[in-house]
Design a binder for these strands. Structure first.
Ligand SMILES: [Mn+2]
Ligand SMILES: [Mn+2]
Ligand SMILES: [Mn+2]
Ligand SMILES: [Mn+2]
Lengths: 152, 152
DNA sequence: TAGATAAGTTAGCCATGTCTAACTTTGTAC
DNA sequence: GTACAAAGTTAGACATGGCTAACTTATCTA
């Protein structure tokens, strides 16, 4: 009576995994979070350049919902990572590597949003959820999303 | 030639959003990341208690892929948050609040995994991706996932 | 029941990412 | 061409979540 109390119906089963595989999963999540800021920044910068002509710290700060000093610090890290080119007090540009990453991220972002929308989710929720989900979607899963979108 | 170069086909459109809504989205992601550790820990603790009889730091560390001191530190935080009850050098128990949270998280985790599996994604990838995605799935989106699962 | 081993904790380090306060630079308006 | 407002940076604080090294406690085994 205490061990297998499946009194109600179990809608979905818990998958029993090897500790090592589970640890691997968590490590993947932690890695995704490390790249997340870089991805969101280059994505945003690319969009600002495209829609506003240039990418300025104020605007980045406004759209990310953070304060300007945070942007300065993070942009420095992007620069150190070779994703961004810029001189102090000037607008921000993407290096080739930055542009490549931005391309990948924007495409992935759009696919995730489109997929959520195709499930009948409203636009605001789709965008909000996608902003986090996008960083945890593997190539395999992204392809599955696209397959669904194209076949419907 | 420089402004609207839609030479190829645009598969998905970029949604143009108000800066404030966008900032809101990013804030939501940051908040999700703050609760993430608590969620993953209580979920794991509940599973260990169920499948192994008790939850011990070594095992938690092994399954999360982190070192024991990290677990000690995080468990202290959970205790301060009122999610966990325990004395030093002893096994870890969930408070009522902890159990409630664990229930919610386990269910959400299972739904996300089942949904990914229903898309034809392999088990390992589904589990890996779900571990990150679960924290960014709103109630609305979770319901959409369940709707799909039940109607198919 | 003593000693050895395993488990757990503590202390202290580091990187990340946020903030406020204060300062500097830039660009504009007159 | 000066002064002012806006934008940007710097300095320094704080919380989080990892780590290693060293210590303590609990458990097992001979
Ligand atoms: Mn994002
Ligand atoms: Mn995340
Ligand atoms: Mn998780
Ligand atoms: Mn989980």
């Amino acid at each position: 009576m205490t061990k297998l109390q499946s009194q109600g119906r179990e809608p979905f089963e818990a998958v029993d995994r090897a500790p090592e595989a589970q640890a691997d999963g968590f490590a993947t999540v932690r890695q995704a979070h490390e790249s997340e800021i870089a991805e969101d920044y280059v994505e945003l910068i690319a969009e600002l350049i495209e829609t506003r002509g240039e990418a300025r710290p104020v605007e980045i700060a406004e759209r990310l919902g953070v304060k300007p000093p945070t942007v300065t610090k993070n942009i420095s890290r992007l620069k150190a990572a070779g994703l961004v080119r810029r001189e102090p007090y000037r607008a921000i540009f993407l290096t080739d590597a930055g542009q490549d990453l931005a391309e990948i991220c924007r495409r992935r972002h759009r696919v995730v949003v489109a997929f959520l929308l195709s499930l009948g989710i409203d636009k605001e929720t789709a965008e909000r959820d996608a902003e986090g989900i996008e960083h945890h979607v593997s190539g395999t899963t992204l392809e599955a999303f696209e397959r669904r979108l194209n076949q419907k």
